[in-house]
Structure formats: structure tokens, C-alpha cells
């Protein structure tokens, strides 16, 4: 098998150099922090971009789906599994984390499909503004359901992963950071393989490019769109699990800002482009961490949204442009 320089080696080289530079500039601690945040943003951004690619809808409720995911994970850990603190046996820990991750992702996947079925599908042929407004409505509904179930104040998430750190190149990195970044990267690679190599992935890309032509190939459009919403919500759910474990507390309005940042990441990478969304997620996280490191913590959000505005003004198609769909 030949390795295509442009497609494989160059991006890997650029990525490695960029990461080493960041590492040198930020130091171990903040670098790990940025990567973890980036993993969360990237997982959510993928959902924005996939849904936009296939139905041309900016799913404003997607940040709230992530928030619901963080609550679902917390509920599974506390109520279902009865966990309250660190699990020190490594084997148990891995098993429990897998259960939490799997259950949250599947649960959120079905919630995402349900929302598409009842909120968006009936409006598929309506003017574009209608589903957009509905998405905002869904966002309010999700926030209200969670705040009435779990209350309006922050809720603690049991820290089941011990906060141990190991020495790494003169600094210290938490096992938690490593676990979460590895997990996010594995999920993203799995997604790329699914979309790029499988029959259903081809159906998704075809549907995104030309829905009618895809139908003529025998693709069930409704089913394909439902699968897309399932995957998008499942990835947001994975982000929700990480959020809870990493920050230790969650709140019903969490999805708003995190969602907006992930949306920025999706736009930055080129809305509709899955690779772009993943890269955008990490870039946004680094921008935010820089602002904090330089002492402008309260300005970090301003920095992120400045990026959004700059992209929209100067490069609306994003860094990598459209990929999943056809229409810009």
C-alpha cells in the first residue's frame, strides 16, 4: 500500500509540530487541560457538523443534548451503579467506565433520534427558519426537563477516576486526562472509518450530497437521517461523560456556552466537514486555555467568539471547507 504524502504524512506532520509547539508554550499541565477540553468540544462539534451536512440544520439543541448526556452519565453512576467516589481497582474502573460510556452514548443516541423524529422530521419540507426555531424550542425543553428533575443549581458528579497523576517530561499528567483524550480520539477515528469505509457511511455521504439521487440508489433517507442524529447525540453523550468526570459538577444550562464553543469549532473547521470539526475543537480549546494562561480568564469566551466572528467574516467555509455535503 502506498502512502499518499498529501493525504497522510503532511497533516500528521503539521499536527505533530503544532502539538509540540503548544506543549513547549503551555507546559504539561495546561497542555493536558487544553487537550481534554478540546476532546469535549470536538466530540460535540462533530454532531453539529454531521447534522448540518445531512439536513442543513444548525441544531441549536445540540449543546443541550450534550448537557443531558452529562446528567444521564451522572444518574447512571449514582443511581444505577451506586458509585460515590474513586474506584481504585483498575479492572473495576475500566469496566465501570465502559458501562457508563456505553449506556450514556446509546441512551443519548435514542434521545437524539427521538428529537429528530418528532421535532424536525415533520418540518423537513418547511422553510428553513421553522426547524431552526424548533431547535431553540427543543433546547429550552431539554433545559427545563433537567432543571425540574435535578434542580437549578450545580449537581456533583462522583469522581470515580482517582485523581492520580504521573510524571511526564518534567510535568505531571492525570490518568483521567489521558483516558479522556484517548477515548475521544478513538471515537473520532471510529467515526471516520464508519463514514469513510462502510456501506451506511457511504449512504450518509450520498444523502448529504444529493438526497434524491441517494433515494434512487435505494437509500432510505429517513433511516439515514435518523442514524446521523443517533451518532451525533451519542458523541455528544460521550462528551457529557467526560465533562462530568473532568469538572466534577454539572448544571442544566451547561449546554449553552459549551455548545456555542463547539459550534464555533464546527464553523472554524468548515461546517459539514468531520475532520475540520475535530481539529476545530482542539483549536478552540487552545485559544481558551491561552486566554486563561495569559491571565485573561474572564476574556476566554470573548476570545473564542472573536474567532467565530473572524471566521464568518473572512473564511465562511472554514479551514477545510465542506466535505460531507455538496451545497456550501
Amino acid at each position: 500500500m502506498t502512502v499518499d504524502f498529501r493525504r497522510v504524512i503532511r497533516p500528521v506532520a503539521i499536527g505533530t509540530i503544532a502539538l509540540l509547539t503548544e506543549y513547549a508554550l503551555l507546559g504539561t499541565q495546561q497542555f493536558a487541560n487544553a487537550l481534554t477540553l478540546g476532546a469535549i468540544y470536538a466530540l460535540i462539534a462533530l454532531g453539529y457538523t454531521m447534522v448540518y451536512g445531512i439536513v442543513e440544520l444548525i441544531n441549536f439543541a445540540h449543546g443541550d443534548i450534550f448537557m443531558v448526556g452529562s446528567f444521564l452519565a451522572m444518574w447512571i453512576m449514582t443511581t444505577v451503579l451506586g458509585l460515590s467516589g474513586p474506584v481504585t481497582n483498575l479492572l473495576n474502573l475500566v469496566g465501570l467506565l465502559s458501562i457508563v460510556m456505553f449506556a450514556t452514548m446509546v441512551g443519548m443516541g435514542f434521545i437524539g433520534m427521538f428529537i429528530e423524529r418528532f421535532a424536525y422530521r415533520p418540518l423537513r419540507h418547511a422553510p428553513r427558519l421553522a426547524p431552526l426555531i424548533t431547535a431553540i424550542g427543543v433546547s429550552f425543553i431539554l433545559q427545563n426537563i433537567i432543571s425540574s428533575l435535578f434542580g437549578p443549581s450545580p449537581v456533583n458528579v462522583p469522581q470515580i477516576v482517582p485523581l492520580d497523576k504521573f510524571a511526564f517530561m518534567g510535568g505531571k499528567i492525570g490518568y483521567l486526562n489521558v483516558f479522556m483524550v484517548v477515548l475521544a480520539v478513538v471515537l473520532m477515528i471510529a467515526l471516520q472509518l464508519f463514514v469513510g469505509r462502510t456501506r451506511l457511511g457511504r449512504a450518509m455521504r450520498s444523502t448529504a450530497q444529493d438526497r434524491e439521487a441517494a433515494e434512487l440508489m435505494g437509500v432510505d433517507i429517513n433511516q439515514t437521517i435518523a442514524i446521523t442524529f443517533f451518532i451525533a447525540a451519542a458523541l455528544a453523550g460521550a462528551g457529557g461523560v467526560i465533562q462530568g468526570l473532568y469538572f466534577g459538577s454539572i448544571k442544566f444550562d451547561l449546554g449553552f456556552f459549551v455548545g456555542l464553543k463547539a459550534f464555533t469549532a464546527a464553523v472554524l473547521g468548515g461546517i459539514g466537514n468531520t475532520t475540520g470539526a475535530a481539529i476545530g475543537g482542539f483549536i478552540i480549546a487552545f485559544v481558551e486555555v491561552y486566554a486563561t494562561v495569559l491571565g485573561y480568564t474572564q476574556w476566554s469566551e470573548v476570545a473564542v467568539f472573536t474567532v467565530l466572528i473572524l471566521v464568518l467574516v473572512f473564511r465562511p467555509s472554514g479551514l477545510l471547507g465542506q466535505q460531507l455535503g455538496e451545497r456550501a
Binding site: R199, R202, R205, S206, Q209, E212, L216, E326
Partner: peptide, 25 residues
Amino acid sequence: GHSPEGRRIFSRLTVLENLKMGAFT
């Protein structure tokens, strides 16, 4: 089988992927 007006091939898919889409069912 319907080959539509304006060809409507999937321009971002490869030729082989387009043909595989034809055999989707």
C-alpha cells in the same frame, strides 16, 4: 433503475464508491 436527468452522480465520492452506491440494495 433510474438514471436521472443531469446525471446526479455523487461528485465527492470516488467512481468506485458511486458504483457501490448503485449496488446499495
